[in-house]
């Protein structure tokens, strides 16, 4: 067993993990943060994306022991404590950027990572950045629109659905 301590959404979290425990498993099963979804468990779908020291990472393809000492941000830390959605979450709601919602945590976390590095991405840059996030409902148009809107850009130019 390995003792790990990390900061998750601003709070210190510690635990004992097996070498093989995945970060996604630690977040969901030890910390109860089930907003991080495990879709494919093969690092394709991106539903499990969280931020590790500010960078988007597929938490199903990182060992929890590797996150010892890291700052982790998950979907649970995105809204304000009173439940007010952040600008990206609100934009997903406003632009109907989700249907079943399964991929949404990963989409929001990837979008947040993109906008941190590139505050005004083009439609093409958004689509390329979401290569590792699969959505089986929306056809992506409304997700792209939501991210354009969250970055304060006009969404009318986004390719018609």
């Amino acid at each position: 067993m390995v003792k790990v301590t990390m900061t998750v959404n601003g709070r210190t979290a510690s635990g004992e993990v097996e070498g093989r425990t995945l970060l996604s498993g630690f977040l969901r099963e030890e910390l109860g943060l089930t907003g991080t979804h495990v879709g494919c468990d093969t690092s394709q779908c991106g539903a499990c994306v969280v931020h590790v020291d500010g960078k988007a990472v597929k938490s199903c393809t990182m060992l929890a022991a590797e996150a010892d000492g890291a700052e982790i941000a998950t979907i649970e830390g995105q809204a304000a404590p009173d439940g007010t959605l952040n600008v990206i979450q609100q934009a997903f709601q406003d632009h109907h950027g989700l249907q079943c919602g399964f991929c949404t945590p990963g989409m929001v976390m990837s979008a947040a990572a993109l906008l941190k590095d590139n505050p005004k991405p083009s439609e093409q840059e958004i689509r390329e950045y979401l290569e590792g996030n699969l959505c089986r409902c929306t056809g992506y148009h409304n997700i792209v629109k939501a991210i354009m809107a969250a970055s304060g850009q006009d969404v009318s130019a986004v390719a018609a659905e």
Partner: peptide, 9 residues
């Protein structure tokens, strides 16, 4: 290579 999250690891 891969996608942004893969490139971060």
């Amino acid at each position: 290579i891969g996608d942004p999250a893969v490139r971060n690891r």
